[in-house]
Structure formats: structure tokens, C-alpha cells
Nucleic acid binder design. Structure first.
Lengths: 230, 230
DNA sequence: TCCTTGATTTTGGTCAGACCAATTTCTATC
DNA sequence: GATAGAAATTGGTCTGACCAAAATCAAGGA
């Protein structure tokens, strides 16, 4: 019984989780180009989801050109994703966090010199939201992500925003990264609110060096937590 | 009443027909990035199709990165097909170079602590290739790009490599950036070989701070040259 | 034995309706 | 005007039904 893996983040909907599982099957060599996937009804039973959900997942694969759906016949493999085709597939959680440490540190330093009071208030609210997320069972990282992207936005540089957003996307897309972060969450390691507050304090003081240091310390702690979760 | 256009081919399924109609709406300017599409139930009535069919069409758009679906809220336009389809369309050459200054500086610092003699020799060869490019009429930047990506590779961090590669891709894809760099080239502003040599020297000395400074000075000079070319 | 035809089964496509969770909007109170 | 709670709206998933297209099977004829 290949039950659908539990969602790796609260952003995931069931169809996405199933699509991901099916893509993993394609990648693993279970199917070759031309093979027919199991029928919708079969997949529905196998993964213990409803048939419309299966349909949605198959459509996600179809739109990405991975399968070719023939009415009355089935879904046929059109292209097998290679490992290198999934951005971030080969990037470890350590590498990702190390890169974020270096790059987000610089973004925080740049943001410190031009951040508005409005942006600081928004960050305060997000710190409170992170604290609230820490108390909830779901393990959502929505506020944490928004926090970091708000700092990037305060740089007022679209290339920096794009880069940091891409790093977060890599994090979301990397199976290895997702697994490690999931382990960290089940080990009850959550974003440390004090570290986030310290970043906001440094930004509020318009101190680039302090902002850089605070962000680096925060992400260095994330690195440590990943080690602990390994 | 915007009934779904009749299928354009017997292969078309309803969800595809509807997805196509929605994409046409996006392309026509009816919606801007950030706008919310009508609710599923509304679209179901408007197009006289079932709600699951609407969902399937929205998923097709979502997987293509055209919309962002938020549970309980709606489907928001993330990207309008057409002019913004090229990543980096709205990123200026200044923003890009500023981001590179911050990020490639850090990559150079990290590379300095672990670069091999082999990698240094490769960088020497690339500096010579940059000098040769400067003498040629074509204005190729192949060696310049390879130089920067080699330094990124010396960090031995796939996330950093990916990020710097993306920044170079943004540069290649951005029309505004291409235009400015073209202006710089016609003004006979070329990569300064001494600046590249200075970066390699700092790396050869395994001096992270010097490497960071050398890379930042180089990219700061690129920023100045863009100003001159404006 | 092989081929053809028709019946049956399987497959995907779409629909209707129900219920739940998340978010937004509205209303009442202070 | 601000806040809290209720109501409404939104997307998410499910069950069940029926239809069209395709595949498979069985029977009959050459």
C-alpha cells in the first residue's frame, strides 16, 4: 500500500502531494517512456485518495509534459524527469542554508540602510505570527518565509528579491531538504523567535553590520538544527 | 455569459478548453499580476461547466506558474503570459549588478578558503581568455561568465552555484540589461583584466576578506560603467 | 485456425451534491 | 474607532452517478 506521503508543508494540497509522488515514481525508473500509468481508480485505491484528486494530480503531470492522457485508454509516460530536471534536486539542505546565510546576511545589511517604519511594523507582526505558528501543531512556515521575503523586499532590489525567493523555492522543491526540515520539525525544532526579533532590532537601528550578523547567527543556528536533525 | 468556446479539436477536453480561455483572458490584459480570478463557483456558472472542471483548469494554470492559489481566498495572477514571460523582465541592470556585488562577493570569500591549485590555474586561463575576448570584435562574454561561475563552483555549494548561474541567466534574459550592456560594449567598456587578476590573486592567497573586496570592487566598477553607458 | 462482428468491460470525462477547513467580510459591542 | 465573534465566501476533498471512448472478450463464419 503506497499511501500518499504526508504533506511536507502546509502549503501542499493533496493533488500536489500525489503529483510529487507520481513524479518520484517516474524519476525512480519504475516507468519507462510509453508505459501506461495505473488507472485513475487504481491510483485512487492505492493512494487512498478520491478519484478527482487523482485526476488533478495527473493533470499536473500532463501540463508539465510528463504524461499523455488518452481518453478511454489511460495516461502514458511521455517523458521521464531526470534528476537534474527538478531544480534543487541535488542541492542539500546544508548547502541551501549556507547559501542563505551568506546571501540573506547581505540582503539584511542592505535592507538596514533603507528600511521604512512601515516595513519594520510588518516584520514585528510577522515575528508575532512566527511565535503563533510555533504554538500550532501544523508546523506551517508561512510566516517564517514571509519574514525573510519582507526583508528581501526592503532592499528594493528586484534581483535580490528574486534570488531569495528562488532559494526558498529550492528549499520547497528539494526532496532531501524537505525531508531534513520535516525531521527538524518532528524533533520540535522551530524558528527561534528571539533570533527573528534580534534581526528586526538591528534593522530598526539601521545598523547594516548588526543586521548582517543577526541574520547570519539565525541561519547559523538553522544549520546547527539541521545537523541535530540528521 | 462567456460560454466555453467550442473545442478547437476533438482531442480537447473541457478543462483544456477552459484553461485556454482563461489564459486568453490573462493575455488580453483583463487581469494584472496580483489580481484575483473569479471564484470557482463563479467561473463554473459563467462558463457553464462543473466546478471540478474549473478546478482542473485552474490547476493547469497553476502548474504553469500563471496563478497562485490560496486556500479560502482565491486564485491570484502570478504572471501574465506574454511580455513578463521572460524571467527578469522587470529587473534592471543596476539591480542585477548590485545583487551580484553582494552575493558574488560572499561566494568569492567562501571560495578563497578552499580553492584548489587546479581551480586557480583554470581561473588564470580564463583571465587570459577575457583579455583575448577584449581584443576581439565580437564582444563575447563567454570567458567572463565562465570566470565567475568557476569561482562559484569553487565554493563547492550547489545552491551558491545555482544562484549565481541564475543571476547570469537573468542578465542574459533581461532586455533592459542586455541593452545597457550592449551600450557599454559599443562605448568600448570591457571587462577590466586587472580587476579579474586581482580577484585571482586574492583567491591564490586564500584570503577571504581580500577576495570579497576584490570581487566587490570589480562589480562596483561594472556598476559605474553601466552609469557611464546610460 | 484465423478473421470479423457484436457485446461486455474498462478507462477517462464530467457532473451534482455534500461537507470541511481557511479566509474574508460583516455585525455588534465597547 | 477598535475589537471580537459570527456569518459568508472561498478553495479542498469526497461520494456517487452517468456518459463517451477504447480495450477486451466471446461467438460465429469463412
Amino acid at each position: 500500500m503506497a499511501a500518499v506521503p504526508s504533506p511536507t508543508s502546509s502549503f501542499d494540497r493533496l493533488y500536489q502531494t500525489l503529483a510529487r509522488a507520481l513524479i518520484a515514481k517516474l524519476s525512480s525508473g519504475k516507468y519507462a517512456v510509453g508505459d501506461r500509468l495505473p488507472a485513475e481508480r487504481e491510483l485512487s485505491i492505492e493512494y487512498d485518495v478520491s478519484r478527482p484528486t487523482v485526476r488533478e494530480a495527473i493533470i499536473a503531470l500532463e501540463v508539465q509534459g510528463l504524461v499523455d492522457v488518452r481518453v478511454g485508454s489511460g495516461a502514458y509516460v511521455k517523458r521521464v524527469p531526470g534528476k537534474t530536471e527538478i531544480p534543487g534536486f541535488n542541492i542539500t539542505a546544508f548547502e541551501l542554508t549556507e547559501a542563505r546565510l551568506l546571501f540573506e546576511g547581505e540582503a539584511a545589511a542592505l535592507a538596514a540602510s533603507q528600511i521604512t517604519d512601515e516595513e519594520l511594523n510588518e516584520l514585528d507582526a510577522l515575528v508575532r505570527a512566527i511565535a503563533a505558528e510555533n504554538l500550532s501543531k501544523g508546523g506551517s512556515e508561512r510566516a517564517d518565509r514571509a519574514f525573510h521575503l519582507s526583508i528581501a523586499a526592503a532592499t528594493r532590489n528586484a534581483a535580490i528579491v528574486n534570488t531569495i525567493k528562488e532559494l526558498w523555492n529550492l528549499r520547497a522543491n528539494s526532496p532531501e531538504s524537505a525531508l531534513l526540515h520535516e525531521k527538524a520539525r518532528t524533533a520540535n525544532i522551530k524558528p527561534v523567535v528571539d533570533e527573528h526579533s534580534a534581526i528586526v532590532d538591528a534593522l530598526r537601528n539601521r545598523d547594516p553590520a548588526a543586521a548582517r550578523t543577526a541574520m547570519r547567527m539565525h541561519l547559523s543556528a538553522v544549520l546547527d538544527s539541521l545537523l541535530f536533525a540528521t
